[in-house]
Amino acid sequence: MTGRLEVRKTYKLFIGGAFPRSESGRTTPVTTPDGRLLAHVAQASRKDVRDAVRAARGAQGAWDGRTPYNRGQIIYRVAEVLEGRSAQLAGELEAVGVASADARADVERAIDAAVYWAGFADKLDALAGGVNPVAGPFLNLSTTVPLGVCALACPGTGVHGVVSLVCPAIMAGNTVVALAGGPAALVTSTLGEVIATSDVPGGVVNLLTGDHAQLLPWLADHDDVDLIDLSGAPDGSAADLEARAADNLKRTVRTGGAEDLLTAMAFCEIRTVWHPARI
């Protein structure tokens, strides 16, 4: 036997800044198109969902307390680290059968999405809020406020599907629990390593690999989740998930990760403060 034996990677969840295996002990085998085993990826459970929501809630106040400029810098750092990891991420997509050019394009789109949202953070209030000209002696000021904890049903297509939902949500001051599976399982797990080394505080981004049909109902039910983005939810699941989300009046949105002001506005609400201007 000659040459060096490669060190294989364990693909785990990313919760509260740490990399646990699933509490359930379950994994999903991920293989190449010709059936060769690549990894046993952690398969998130209901308990992992709860842990991730708790971590996200715990991190939300401090993250919202950062300045938008600072959040923008951190998201830009995500783009930088993504760029450095682009070959690995593209390789992980190719390994599960994504064509090489498509894999590279997906990672590049993800990096560019992170850059787009990094630059959005300190424009959001100027674009979505403002001073309102009320008919009286008052200063009337509308600003954006994050919704809190956002659950993201990411499409299982690749890196972009996850990054394009995570970045606008955290840009606006939310913390997230993002769920992705399928061909995106390996890269979603690796994305945790990118986030963990990008100055994103632990708990702001939590990444779960697992089955949408199994886990989305728990996220839609959860009383401590404020918004659920169903962009990558399975066809036909909307009626059930939206009815579940009604119990605590969660916002349900489908931003599709579009890079525009509407996506940004979907991840925040408006707070308006009045103050008399007479003495």
Binding site: N132, P133, V134, A135, G136, F138, N140, S142, E269, I270, R271, T272, V273, W274, H275, P276
Partner: peptide
Amino acid sequence: GVVWANCFNQFDPASP
């Protein structure tokens, strides 16, 4: 969604 500082129950069509 609405905070009134040193006032209360003010409304205006220009104010969300």
